[in-house]
């Protein structure tokens, strides 16, 4: 059953795209900045987990955690020493700054790990399950569960908790948010740490399945952005649905049409959405037109 097989692999990568898209959404919701370095957090997460596991011989769960924390710290560093000084600059400079930071991360990763791809052992050992004649890797389920858990958790966090609501207020109107006593700076910081950590979690989860190398970040980032836009920038559920959709479309293309062009699927989808309906399928045009950028 090829179709089911493609569906499984599509859902797996789709969950990763959803996680990357979430990363964009969190920062966007708090600052209205699009962080072009988002994909590099994923790459860094995967490679750091390999480092903690293979070089420092941490138990796998610790390696996972350590990697997420480290990348979260990179997000902190990025906000504290780069974004904080650049936030008031024009959009053009902001874009270039986040691109520059992504190149710095990529260049550093190349120095540490070289150009070879690395692998990581799966979270749980064992034969793949056979469902309707298609093999489902145990790791795929991990990826899917990690992704869904994070989406659900974040949606609740942003819609229910005090902190989540406060973070959203920062983007809508930072001055008003500050006046009602929300520590805007702290919220921005939190958003960068959170989105870096989430990207890293996705990176660790996917590495056992598809390996990881220093220059995977840009493409992952762009596809994730495709999911974020398709789902309507800032919408968590939209990101999840759109991410899974892109993943499935990509894997069907790889299966039935051409594996070489599978990477182009998400990109073409991104361009089409941007050209036809830039507010996405869950977004609102009127809200989009009053955003700062």
């Amino acid at each position: 059953m090829d179709f089911i097989q493609y569906l499984f692999s599509g859902l797996t990568v789709g969950a990763i795209y959803a996680l990357v898209a979430l990363g964009y959404n969190i920062i966007y919701n708090v600052t209205e900045i699009i962080n072009f370095a988002q994909g590099e957090f994923v790459m860094l997460g995967g490679l750091l987990a390999v480092f903690y596991r293979e070089v420092l011989h941490f138990p796998l769960a610790f390696a996972f955690l350590a990697s997420v924390v480290t990348v979260g710290f990179v997000g902190y560093f990025f906000e504290r020493f780069v974004i904080r000084y650049a936030r008031e600059q024009a959009v053009l400079s902001l874009i270039i700054i986040t691109i520059a930071f992504s190149i710095v991360l990529k260049g550093s990763a190349m120095l540490f790990w070289g150009k070879d791809p690395y692998t990581l052992e799966p979270f749980t050992q064992g034969e793949p399950w056979i469902i309707f004649g298609a093999a489902l890797q145990r790791q795929s389920l991990w990826v899917f569960l990690t992704g869904t858990a994070i989406v659900v958790g974040l949606s609740l966090f942003f819609s229910r908790s005090y902190y989540g609501k406060a973070m959203c207020a920062c983007a809508d109107n930072p001055v008003a948010a500050r006046m009602v006593g929300i520590p805007v700076r702290k919220m921005i910081m939190l958003s960068f740490v959170l989105s870096a950590a989430i990207g890293a979690a996705g990176g660790v989860a996917i590495t056992p399945l598809s390996l990881m190398e220093y220059d995977r970040g840009a493409l992952l980032g762009l596809k994730g952005f495709g999911a974020a836009v398709l789902g309507g920038l800032g919408h968590f559920w939209g990101a999840l649905v759109a991410g899974l959709f892109l993943g499935i479309a990509e894997s069907m293309c790889a299966g039935y049409l051409s594996s070489g062009y599978k990477d182009a699927v998400a990109l073409v989808a991104l361009l089409l959405v941007l050209f036809v309906r830039p507010q996405g399928f869950f977004g609102n045009a009127e809200v989009g037109s009053i955003k700062r950028f």
């Binding site: 691109i99 520059a100 992504s102 190149i103 991360l105 260049g107 550093s108």
Partner: peptide, 13 residues
């Protein structure tokens, strides 16, 4: 790559 990134970052900032 790293050097390019750093130059770009410093100039843009």
């Amino acid at each position: 790559v790293l050097i390019y990134g750093l130059i770009l970052l410093v100039i843009a900032m």
